[in-house]
């Protein structure tokens, strides 16, 4: 039995395929979270400032995305965009390259859209948790609103948001597996292909699970360290 596994994993090269899949998973996850966060900060500020119409729109977006399964959002973006992406790409004469890059780009957009909705809530909560006294202190020093925001509010809020961002990241790296159902070649998809070809789904799905577990465990350790670093100088509890 061990010999069989050795042949499968090493001689047939499935280890390499799985590792490459894991790399793609991490790439999608990181890009998804970073783009999601970059989009979430302005959106969260809109909600925090309670700008009329805009803040309700952000609210609606975040409620819909958080209330609906990730799978459905991914179906919407993939099936909804196939048509016009083809049109745009062939209009510019890139039909072939669009076909190859398309699942990857839409996959990242889908993951970013989902993580953004959760990040908005995290950052808004953090912005609201910044003590008012500090903002008043900044105003009494006659700092401009812009300076106050970038020097006082944002750095403090990001420290408070760290725990929430960790949760979003953990969720996002697990959500990337959903993109596999529309044909993105990440870890889960690679495992499914391997399971189909070698007819040993138990082995490959368990390996995929172990790899995901490794990713979440390592990132948890890194986040704990980051949290300790950013909380230096603050009393615990």
């Amino acid at each position: 039995m061990f010999y069989d596994i050795w042949v499968l994993m090493v001689e047939k090269g499935w280890t390499l395929a799985l590792l490459r899949g894991a790399g793609v998973t991490i790439l999608i996850g990181v890009l998804g979270v970073v783009i999601g966060l970059a989009a979430a900060i302005p959106l969260a500020i809109l909600r925090w400032r309670r700008l009329p119409v805009l803040s309700q729109l952000v609210d609606a977006y975040s409620i819909v995305i958080r209330g609906v399964p990730g799978l459905l959002v991914i179906y919407l973006l993939f099936f909804g965009s196939v048509d016009w992406v083809q049109k745009v790409a062939s209009a510019f004469g890139y039909a072939d390259s669009a076909e190859n890059a398309y699942p990857f780009i839409v996959g990242i957009i889908a993951i970013a859209a989902i993580s953004c909705a959760y990040s908005v809530e995290v950052i808004r909560g953090a912005l609201q948790a910044v003590p008012l006294g500090l903002l008043e202190a900044a105003r009494s020093l006659s700092l401009t609103p812009r300076l106050t925001f970038f020097r006082v509010t944002l750095p403090l809020a990001l420290r408070l948001a760290l725990g929430g961002i960790n949760n979003v990241w953990q969720m996002t790296i697990k959500d990337t597996s959903l993109v596999s159902v529309v044909g993105m070649q990440e870890l889960m998809r690679t495992a499914a292909i391997a399971a189909g070809i070698t007819r040993s789904p138990l082995l490959f799905y368990c390996l995929a699970a172990a790899m995901f577990f490794g990713m979440t465990a390592v990132s948890q350790i890194l986040f704990n360290r980051a949290e300790k670093y950013f909380n230096r100088g603050f009393s615990r509890g």
């Binding site: 959903l178 495992a191 138990l202 799905y205 995901f212 979440t216 465990a217």
Partner: peptide, 23 residues
């Protein structure tokens, strides 16, 4: 708890439905 919270639900469902059926 660590295993089920650290892996995606999709993997869990595949291991249970496709994987365990192999045994």
């Amino acid at each position: 708890c660590a295993v089920f919270r650290g892996t995606p639900m999709l993997v869990q469902i595949f291991v249970i439905y496709y994987g365990l059926a192999q045994i």
